[in-house]
């Protein structure tokens, strides 16, 4: 027992009889362990701690959570916000995807690059970018000033109106990508067929394109809605205190009110509610299939 050996579950003991890699499915099953362990540690453990924390007072925290006056209000606000963001993002995202597919090559490359780059940039950075745009004497103010349109400082920063464009921009890739892939998988011959049989662009879109991208629009929308339920940074920076989301209320309980158990209970309620919404939507619109 001098040399520590690593044995993998199901791996052959003797190297002599070892088959070439990838021969049987069972032999490669150990490859699943690293990601599973990672998920257990990175996702399962904190969630478990959160659950234990929320039950520290024997479930009292849940009752208290619902009694916190800001919670119910912020929950409603968050849901309304998520719905608005979802609708705006899906409409704009579909338009963006159509523009990508219909563009000449050079423009398509530019539109795609803009989308992917924004996906790669942290939400924090993008939210700060919008902040610089919207500040009373910010970039937008300066730009309008060029045309002599900005006499007074802008009242956009930390308002509800100022918050939505940023949130839609943050979520846009998640609505664009599935619609784009649906558009690209439409059979060219079907579009040709519609044209040959006399349909103009409007009827072609309505009868061929629309029915084939609708499922992807719905699944993109569900994804955006679910993600928007957990929005924290963007509304905090751009929406101001009057637009506090559930995540903001949880943060206040954890860090300011010094009631981590109530914060934990609220978190569990939010995560659980989100999961229920997602599972129902997945059943209805098959969201996970669209995201492979």
């Amino acid at each position: 027992m001098s040399v520590p050996t690593i044995t993998m579950p199901g791996a052959p003991v003797s190297p002599a009889v070892r088959k070439p890699l990838g021969v049987s499915r069972a032999e490669s099953r150990w490859l699943l362990w690293p990601p599973l362990v990672f998920f257990a540690v990175a996702l399962g453990l904190p969630l478990l701690m959160l659950v234990t924390q929320s039950f520290e007072g024997g479930g009292v925290a849940y009752g208290d959570a619902l009694d916190v006056p800001t919670f119910a209000g912020s929950l409603m606000r968050t849901i309304v916000m998520a719905v608005v963001v979802m609708v705006l993002t899906v409409v704009l995202g579909t338009a963006y995807a159509l523009a990508i597919v219909a563009s000449p090559v050079w423009l398509r490359f530019g539109l795609l690059a803009a989308l992917i780059l924004s996906l790669w940039t942290s939400i924090m950075v993008r939210s700060f970018g919008w902040m610089l745009l919207e500040l009373p004497q910010g970039a937008l103010h300066w730009f309008l000033g060029l045309f002599g349109l900005a006499d007074e400082p802008l009242e956009l920063y930390q308002t509800t109106i100022g918050m939505y464009p940023a949130m839609v921009a943050v979520m846009l890739p998640f609505a664009v990508l599935p619609v784009m892939s649906a558009l690209q998988s439409i059979d060219r011959e079907q579009l040709n067929a519609a044209t040959i049989f006399g349909a103009g662009p409007l009827l072609t879109f309505r009868s061929v394109t629309w029915p084939q991208i609708l499922p992807s629009m719905l699944s993109g929308g569900v994804l955006v809605f679910v993600m928007a339920l957990g929005f924290y940074v963007t509304p905090l920076l751009l929406g101001g205190p009057s637009n506090m989301t559930v995540s903001g209320v949880i943060n206040a309980q954890m860090n300011q009110a010094n009631r981590p158990d109530i914060g934990a209970a609220m978190s569990i309620l939010l995560v659980g509610g989100t999961m229920i919404v997602y599972l129902i939507a997945d059943r209805l619109f098959r969201v996970s299939e669209k995201w492979g």
Partner: peptide, 17 residues
């Protein structure tokens, strides 16, 4: 093409699914 009044059977048939 809309105004030519031709009928086409496409290779993949291109029926609207």
């Amino acid at each position: 093409p809309q105004k030519r009044n031709v009928g086409v059977v496409f290779q993949s048939y291109a029926l609207f699914p």
